[in-house]
Design a protein around this nucleic acid. Structure first.
Length: 387
RNA sequence: GGUGGGGUGGCCGAGUGGCUAAUGGCAGCAGACUGUAAAUCUGCCGGGUUAACGCCCUACGAAGGUUCGAAUCCUUCCCCCACCA
């Protein structure tokens, strides 16, 4: 099959645009995603500590998983034999799989990049695994996600232009190989999959422009990834690059800002034309005791919460906030009880999902400019409610 | 009563003449985390003063002694543990 064959399965139905911000409905074989939206990250076919039922209840519409990690364990062929990722992990909503491109960055000490692909030394047992655009497409086919990301070359955010150009141009060459690999497959996917290209180019506007244009002209894409951000560069650089990319990508397709992010980055991203986000922050930070609130972040382990009877966030109706006090949640963390990790993860994911739902409403109402300004002002004022 | 072992900073526990305000670990107090090698990592952690460097004080059961110098050596005492009687 080719990436252009199942257009109707991945239509992006724009509802309203206010400046760069948009509200839309993204159709996938496993349901519709109302955007802007935050996707929870389930690298190992699990959003750490959360049951798919929790995600449903929270209102999470789409989740992520990862080709590199699932290939190593338990193996993408095993997952294929179980009917694919949706069936294996019992999540029947839309799934997006990342290609392993991020691991080129995060596992820098364990891999070697060449034009052909990337040789990883497994972080689990040291064994060697070669990932190429071709093998990655096969892995992502086996996993069976709705949206599959191209294999790309991610570099640190502060990388100089020559390094960024090299990685960006390589990613574009790899994109063509991803398409060719899919076209060569014997049988069509059980359910259609949309391959998203990824715009790279570091913090260099000209590179980003070139990459976006080259990608845009190279196919009829169902959506676009914006990668290589929130990897060490300064926030103003990230926002600036988003504006550059926003101007270059077609407005009638979804844009997915990969790996972002923190609450303020989601709002800033929405204002710059981003539709989809994902980030490990809500779950990882939740496991480490950090809590998102509308008044900034707080750390539940702090001594000041020892006797605090209030919920994490007075305005939140998640399963943690509607039942438990800060004092109790702090106790769970201090006592190293696993329920604490789970409840904070639940709250943080809920917070981001709800934040995007609010942004979406504000776009539909036409009040997004004021909403975002007010929300950011309050969040940055960091008057975190304390005891 | 005898013999042996031991008493170190909130706790556990190294150290056996100067590099020791004293290794580690825990507890405590803060901070970080952005397509997850993460329920992880980092910093502080006797008191006073200082922006900091530093300076001063107190401290290795107690008291005394040896020494230029002691948590470390000697003497006496107190307490704990084991075994013997």
């Amino acid at each position: 099959m080719s990436v252009t064959e199942h257009v109707s399965d991945f239509t992006f139905e724009l509802e309203r645009e206010i400046g760069s911000a948009r509200a839309a409905r993204f159709h996938t074989p496993h349901g519709v995603v109302e955007t802007p939206a935050f996707m929870a990250v389930g690298t190992l076919a699990t959003v750490k500590s959360l049951d798919p039922r929790d995600l449903r209840e929270i209102g999470c519409q789409m989740i992520l998983s990862n080709a590199y990690h699932l290939h190593l364990r338990p193996g993408d062929e095993l997952i294929r034999d179980f009917g694919g990722l949706h069936e294996f992990m019992r999540w029947d909503g839309p799934i997006l799989t990342d290609s392993g491109g991020f691991q080129v960055f995060s596992l820098e000490g364990l891999r070697t990049v060449s034009e052909d692909g990337v040789e990883f030394r497994s972080h689990l047992d040291g064994s060697t695994h070669v990932f190429t655009p071709e093998t990655v497409m096969q892995i992502e086919r086996n996993l069976g996600a709705d949206v599959i990301m191209q294999f790309d070359h991610v570099i640190p955010g502060q990388s100089e232009e020559s390094v960024a150009r090299d990685a960006s141009e390589r990613s574009i060459r790899w994109l063509a190989r991803c398409v060719a690999a899919i076209d060569k497959m014997d049988a069509p996917a059980t359910k259609p999959q949309a391959l998203f290209p990824i715009v790279q180019g570091g913090i260099h506007a000209s590179l980003r422009r070139e990459a976006a244009r080259a990608i845009r002209q190279s196919g009829d894409w169902r959506g676009f990834g914006i990668g290589g951000l929130s990897v060490g560069e300064a926030k103003p650089d990230m926002y600036r690059i988003l504006e550059v990319v926003d101007a270059e990508l077609p407005r009638d397709k979804p844009r997915y800002l990969m790996g972002v992010g923190f609450p303020e980055d989601l709002v800033e991203g929405v204002m710059r034309g981003v539709d989809l986000f994902d980030c490990v922050a809500p779950t990882r930070m939740g496991r480490n005791g950090a809590v998102f609130t509308n008044d900034g972040r707080l750390n539940i382990k702090r001594a000041e919460f020892r006797t605090d009877r209030r919920p994490l966030d007075e305005e939140c109706d998640c399963a943690a906030c509607s039942r438990f006090s800060r004092a109790y949640l702090r106790h769970l963390f201090v006592a190293d009880e696993m329920l604490g990790l789970r409840l904070l993860s639940l709250h943080n994911v809920h917070f981001l999902v709800r934040l995007m739902r609010s942004a979406r409403s504000a776009i539909q109402d036409g009040t997004i400019d004021a909403w975002s300004r007010d929300w950011l002002a309050r969040y940055h004022s960091r008057k975190v409610p304390t005891a």
